[in-house]
Simulated scan of single mutants.
Amino acid sequence: MPRLGVSIYPEHSTKEKDIEYLTLAAKYGFKRVFTCLLSVEGKNVDEIKKEFKEIIGHANALEMEVILDVAPNIFSKLGITYEDLSFFAELGAAGIRLDEGFDGAKEAFMTFNPYNLKIEINASIGTKYIDNILSYKANKENIITCHNFYPQMYTGISFRHFEKCSKDLKDLGLRVAAFVSSQNDSTFGPWPVNEGLCTLEEHRFLSMDVAARHLFATGLVDDVIVANAYASEEELKALSKVNPAKLTFKIDMNDQVSDVEKEIIFNFPHYVRGDMSEYMARSTMSRITFKDADIGPHHTDALKRGDIIIINNAYGRYKGELHIILKDMPNDGRKNIVGRIPENELKLLEYIEPWRVFEIIL
């Protein structure tokens, strides 16, 4: 089941603020927490336990799973070995994310830890690293993957690289997570550079819900995590409303849209007709339900990619159909443009295909 997550960075905030944020995220159904153990300079094991244990305990009480980001040098600094992961279990973590790897054999051995901690692997590296781990007969049930995030502008990965890496992992039957960036003011991450935190560079300045709908639309991502802290309540609420199973579009509504048309747009279940045209995605069953409705003509300008239309009275038996326009074409007056998909969501049109269920939201 797809899940949403948030991130906290205790070394850059206060325990009280982190606990408040986790409580807010849990209110909106968030189930994952990412946090970082990569900056532990000058701290001993007892100090780290004190710093993290209460916060992780609070997350667990909210039924949220915490993954700790670690690296081989952290193991050395804290005197932890790959044979004994009890330190992370004592903190209450659900798993550890290996920001950098060992040699494959060690990671495989860690998947058999008696605490069933998840071993999360970096999904963005694009090598045969995970194949190497699996070649050592790893316990696949305890392996999950997560892409990186990138604080420095223009360093986020390309969609092409994301797609290749994610497909390879899905082919192995592994869960894949990715990060989106809050657009809230004064957010922060683990490092001093804070130019947004995202997996895909094209998402850096996108609202979280649009970026998440894109990731889910690919069918290559199971979990979406907000990388920077703290996202606003408005952002968390919007993200919580995203349905991972549906291709979802916002609409910039035109005026003069009738109540009947609004009912068709927002309250009728839509799916793309199987024999799909290159010019449009048709949702046709609404013409049966609304065959007796009065749908007068309005906004009958030429049609552009991204327009959403409803057929009006003049088209007889087709009246009431809803179309999403995929290719520019003329309008003979029988199609009402009820609104348009926002420019920053037009990329989602690439995921329209026959029989795909979709939804239009305000």
Rank of each mutant, 00 (worst) to 15 (best):
L4Q: 06
L4A: 02
E11V: 11
T14S: 13
T14N: 05
E20N: 13
Y28G: 02
V33P: 06
V33L: 06
L37C: 09
D46S: 11
K49R: 12
I55A: 02
I67T: 14
N73S: 12
I80Q: 08
I80L: 03
D84Q: 07
E90H: 09
G92P: 09
A93I: 03
N116C: 01
N122R: 04
A123I: 00
S124P: 04
I125K: 10
N132C: 10
A138Y: 02
P151D: 05
Q152H: 12
D168Q: 11
L174Q: 04
D185I: 08
T187V: 12
T187M: 06
G196D: 00
R204C: 02
V210L: 07
R213L: 01
R213K: 12
L215D: 00
V226T: 08
S232G: 07
E235D: 04
L239S: 10
N243C: 01
D252S: 15
M253F: 03
Q256Y: 13
M280V: 14
T284F: 15
M285R: 14
R287V: 01
R287W: 07
I288A: 11
I295D: 04
I295A: 00
D307R: 08
I308Y: 10
N312T: 01
N331H: 03
V338Y: 04
L346D: 03
K347W: 12
W355Y: 15
I361G: 06
I361T: 14
L362E: 15
